[in-house]
C-alpha cells in the first residue's frame, strides 16, 4: 500500500505540493488526476525518494522508499518513459534492470513478450522507438521485479486505443491479484474505467478524493433546453450552480427533478435531461481545478 501524509514541497515561496494526504490500499487502482503542473509528478517523485519533501512523509509497504531493500522487487516505478539512454536497445535497458534486481535474464524475454515488443523491436535503440513503444518498454521495466506496488506517471501517454485498453486490463489484473496501483493522468476518461479510487489534485492541493462511484453520483445533472441562459439564471437564483457543459447544454449540481421543476416554472422547453455521470465528473474535475486556479491567482 501507499500512504502519504501531509506531504509538502516548496520551491522558494511556491508550494508545488501542499499538505497532500491520501492512502491507496492493496487491491485498488487509484487514479491520480490533475491538470498539467498540478503537482502529480512532484508528489510521485517524493513517494519514490527522488525529490526530498519540504515536510510530511510518504511510505510504501509501510516503509519509506529509501528503506526498501532492493526496491525494484517491491515497487514498479515508471515516471518518464523517455528518461532512458537513447543509445541503448530496449532489451539492454531491461537487462540492466534485471541485473540490478538480481533477476534471471529470462525475465527480460518474458516482459518483452508481455508488453508486445518483438525480437526485432527489442534490438532497436531507444532513439528509434515511438512514444508508444517507449511506454510499453517502461511498463515492462516497472513489472520486471514482480512488484506489489505500481507507481505510473501518465503511462497511457502515447499509447494507441488498443494499447490503452491492454494497459487497463493489465492494471486491473494486477490489482485483482492484491497489488496496489497509483496511476496519474491529466485526462479523466483515461483512468475512469480502471480506477476504483480517484484523487484529484489542483495547484498542489487535493480538491476531491474518494471512491469513483461516490464521486460519480455527486456529479450532478446535464440539461439541454431551447433557452439555456434563462434556465441557468433561474437555477442560480434558486441557489444551484450552473455552467455551460462541454458539448452544449448546462451542467448543474441540482438533481434532475429539481431542474425539471425550475424549467416548468420558467416555461423553458427541455430537449434533454439526465444525470451527468462520467461527463459530469469531467465537468466537476474541470470546475474543481479551475476554481482552485482562481484561488491561486487571487492569493
Amino acid at each position: 500500500m501507499i500512504k502519504v501524509e501531509d506531504l509538502t514541497r516548496r520551491y522558494g515561496s511556491y508550494a508545488a505540493v501542499d499538505s497532500v494526504s491520501f492512502e491507496v490500499q492493496p487491491g485498488t487502482v487509484a487514479g491520480f488526476l490533475g491538470p498539467n503542473g498540478a503537482g502529480k509528478s512532484t508528489c510521485m517523485r517524493m513517494i519514490c525518494g527522488l525529490t526530498p519533501p519540504t515536510s510530511g512523509t510518504a511510505t510504501v509497504l509501510g516503509k519509506t522508499y529509501a528503506a526498501l531493500p532492493n526496491p525494484g522487487r517491491h515497487v514498479g516505478v515508471l515516471l518518464d518513459a523517455a528518461a532512458q539512454h537513447n543509445g541503448r536497445t530496449g532489451r539492454e535497458i531491461l537487462t540492466l534492470g534485471a541485473i540490478m534486481m538480481g533477476l534471471d535474464r529470462r525475465r527480460v524475454d518474458e516482459m518483452l513478450e508481455l508488453v508486445g515488443l518483438n525480437k526485432e523491436e527489442s534490438k532497436r535503440r531507444l532513439r528509434d522507438y515511438s512514444l508508444g513503444m517507449r511506454q510499453r518498454l517502461g511498463i515492462a521495466h516497472s513489472l520486471l521485479g514482480d512488484p506489489k506496488v505500481l507507481i505510473l506517471d501518465e503511462p497511457a501517454n502515447g499509447l494507441d486505443p488498443a494499447g490503452i485498453r491492454w494497459m487497463r486490463g493489465l492494471l486491473r489484473g494486477f490489482a485483482d491479484e492484491g497489488g496496489t496501483v497509483l496511476l496519474s493522468s491529466h485526462l479523466l476518461h483515461e483512468v475512469e474505467v480502471v480506477a476504483d479510487e480517484l484523487i484529484v489534485i489542483g495547484r498542489g492541493k487535493i480538491v476531491a478524493e474518494g471512491p469513483k462511484s461516490a464521486l460519480l453520483s455527486a456529479a450532478g445533472t446535464t440539461v439541454r433546453t431551447t433557452d439555456d441562459q434563462r434556465l441557468a439564471n433561474a437555477l442560480e437564483s434558486a441557489g444551484f450552480q450552473a455552467s455551460p457543459a462541454t458539448g452544449g447544454g448546462i451542467h448543474t449540481d441540482a438533481v434532475p427533478e429539481q431542474v425539471g421543476r425550475i424549467a416548468l416554472e420558467q416555461q423553458v422547453v427541455l430537449t434533454e435531461l439526465r444525470q451527468a455521470g462520467t461527463a459530469g465528473l469531467e465537468e466537476m474535475f474541470l470546475q474543481l481545478t479551475a476554481a482552485d486556479a482562481r484561488e491561486g491567482v487571487a492569493a
Binding site: 515516471l79 518518464d80 539512454h85
Partner: peptide, 18 residues
C-alpha cells in the same frame, strides 16, 4: 554525467535509493 544528460538517474536512483 550520463545519469543527468540521458536522464537515466530517474531509474538508477529508484532502483538504488542509497
Amino acid at each position: 554525467t550520463s545519469e543527468w544528460s540521458q536522464r537515466t538517474g530517474l531509474v538508477t536512483f529508484t532502483l538504488e535509493p542509497r
